[in-house]
Design a protein around this nucleic acid. Structure first.
Lengths: 101, 101
DNA sequence: CTACCGATATTGCGATACGATATTGTATTC
DNA sequence: GAATACAATATCGTATCGCAATATCGGTAG
């Protein structure tokens, strides 16, 4: 599936978006994405979260919930800034590709 | 720049879109993308075009223009189909991430 | 202290990204 | 008609990413 190349960025924007609204953790965001018709495997998801954190877009904090350790991620201000940039790009894409300006 | 991961898919959708409207060739699409604030180097562009063709989304034909060989690409019906899928995904992304449904 | 379980982490390999460099093919000049 | 010039495409080498499969972690219950 080459198509995937087209949408992987969308998934990352989704992640950033959700993390800007509330704390999220890996398994949860995977399910959330699945609800939107995307799939992401742990071998892609976790390295991605790590990268986003390393880039300063997300900040993590571990919490124990029902005896299980979860790593909650929240968007930083830098992350929110990138999200806004992304929104702008999405709007441009809509104007160019969908609205047939 | 991690941000790039976010937008590479956008670039590919752009390419598919333009190739669905009219024949395009590499250097031209690179300039067109630059006009939209994207940059893509030849080391990324040409392999991408090759992949899109191999996947059956684009079809190429060589032409000589002003003494230079150009390889024009046009979207196939499969390519247009993927483009429509992409548009749908973009609309979903807008609904979810921008319109704050 | 062992077994269990949700969740996160890592591994191995194929594929992609990309700057730098090389190649191609035609026209022009002499 | 050989050499030169040039736009355009192609490839190379290295770093990084994608991902399915597998391993590991940390806490709780028995």
């Amino acid at each position: 599936m080459l198509d995937r190349e087209f949408f992987l960025g969308f998934i990352k924007i989704h992640i950033l978006y959700h993390a800007s609204k509330e704390s999220i953790f890996g398994t949860e965001i995977a399910q959330e994405l699945a609800r939107h018709g995307y799939s992401i495997s742990p071998g892609t998801l976790y390295p991605t979260l790590h990268r986003l954190e390393k880039a300063g877009y997300l900040k993590s904090s571990s919490q124990v919930v029902e005896g299980k350790v979860r790593k909650y991620y929240l968007a930083t201000s830098a992350g929110k800034r990138v999200l806004e940039q992304s929104k702008k790009k999405i709007r441009e894409l809509v104007t160019e590709v969908i609205e047939e300006r």
